[in-house]
Simulated assay, not measured.
Amino acid sequence: MKASKEPLWTKDFTVVSVINFFVMLVFYLLIVIISAYAVDELQASTSQAGLATGIFIIGALIGRLATGSIIDSFGKRKILFLGLSLFILTSLLYYIEAGITFLFITRLLHGIALGIASTATGTLIAAIIPASRKGEGIGYYSMSTTLATAIGPFLGLYLTQIASYTAIFSFCLALSIISFTGALAVRTKEPEPSRTADAKREAFSLSRLIEPKALPIAVVVLVTGFAYSSVLSYINFFAKEIGLVEAASFFFIVYAVSVLASRPFTGRLMDSKGENHIMYPAFVAYGLGLLLLSAAGTSMVLLLAGVLIGLGFGNMQSTTQAIAIKSTVPQRMGLATSTFFIFLDAGLGFGPYALGLIIPSTGYRTLYASLGVLMLLMIAGYYFLHGNKSKARTAH
């Protein structure tokens, strides 16, 4: 039991979590305002505005793919500084109004910077957390992303009402500079870098970009992220359709409170009982939340759906990240973290485009109901991909 008393809230753990919060806050804040900026300031078409939003995710994917393969040999701290430096430089590009094509380039480069920085923070945190508290630690750390997903959109929509786009970009730049300054205080032991010969031998191997052992859980992450993209992208359109716009503005706040309230309990439960004790109930909560959302007609029902989706998807995010990291050797934790986020970003990034094609024929209610059923069916998918193997691991 002594192992459970290993300190978790160290200076490094706190600083890296705050850096991740600021970086992700900038991401989620800009994702809700950039399409309006493209239309208002650059006279972009609706489809161009959508591309300005989504191309950032493509950049993040590129950044994660590139980083996952080099982070363990170059060093986590160096990669973090590289990512945050690029994050500051690309934030400056928003001040240049040079047409929609330049905005596409800015968004792509900014996304690459985010992919590098967030892979570095995720890998650093995995190295900082004591092994005996991995589930609990990653649960607390991923709350920084959960808070950003709630506060970012809320703040972005609020700031557009009281400030200019230039002022909003300045706010994002300030957060980026604070993050870089905070990184100077991070001190972690780096493992021995990979041997050059090994690196050369694997140069053209897929395992240099993806951690194969993390792939089964990454597939689960892809599907759950795909479903959640429907909430991120279309909740406001759905709310307008059913006359619940005011309630919808609090949806992500309720979602975040739900995750924050349950995360300390679920993290410890994972460490003591194993991930299946979190994942199976989370699939049920997530599925029921989406079904409830599809049937929403009052503010109470809409917000209750937010609570259930938070208990479901919110806790899945941290649990699946911990599973991905635990699935491999310490030397490939960076690659496992990168693999996890690549699949999460792919689900969140490409989901809106795919779902947007079917919404005209299904409508929002049918869409959410179908995704709710899909999440309940994914209980079987998770069982075959990982759940049936985890019993043996936790019994070890």
Rank of each mutant, 00 (worst) to 15 (best):
M1Q: 09
A3G: 08
L8Q: 04
K11Q: 07
S17H: 09
S17C: 10
V23E: 10
V23A: 14
L25I: 11
L25K: 09
L29Y: 08
V32I: 15
I33R: 12
A36Q: 13
V39A: 14
V39H: 08
A44S: 05
Q48W: 09
A52G: 08
A52K: 04
A60V: 15
I62M: 15
T67P: 01
D72L: 10
G75R: 00
K76L: 13
K76D: 14
R77G: 00
K78M: 03
S85A: 13
L93A: 14
Y94E: 11
A98W: 14
G99I: 07
T101W: 12
F102S: 07
L103E: 15
T106Q: 11
H110M: 12
A117D: 04
G122N: 11
A126Y: 00
I129F: 00
I129Y: 00
S132W: 01
E136L: 13
T149E: 00
A150K: 01
I151R: 06
I151W: 09
I151F: 06
G156Y: 10
L159D: 02
T166F: 13
A167Y: 06
I168A: 01
F169D: 11
F169I: 01
C172E: 09
C172T: 15
A174D: 03
L175I: 09
I177S: 02
I178R: 04
S179A: 12
S179L: 03
F180L: 15
G182Y: 05
L184F: 15
A185K: 10
V186A: 04
A199M: 13
K200V: 02
A203E: 15
F204Q: 05
R208Q: 11
I210H: 00
I210K: 01
V220D: 12
L222A: 10
K240W: 01
E246Y: 03
V259R: 09
L260G: 13
A261L: 14
R263C: 07
P264F: 04
G267V: 07
R268I: 05
L269H: 07
N276V: 10
I278E: 02
Y280P: 01
Y280C: 04
P281V: 00
A285L: 03
Y286W: 13
G289Y: 10
L291N: 04
L292Y: 04
S299N: 11
L303C: 01
G306M: 03
V307C: 11
L308Q: 07
G314E: 05
M316S: 09
T320P: 06
T320W: 05
T320E: 07
A322Y: 05
I325M: 11
F341H: 00
G347I: 04
L348M: 15
L348H: 08
G356P: 14
L357V: 13
I359K: 08
T362I: 14
T366K: 10
L371Q: 07
L371W: 05
G372W: 01
I379R: 07
Y382H: 07
K389Q: 15
S390R: 10
K391L: 13
K391N: 14
R393N: 14
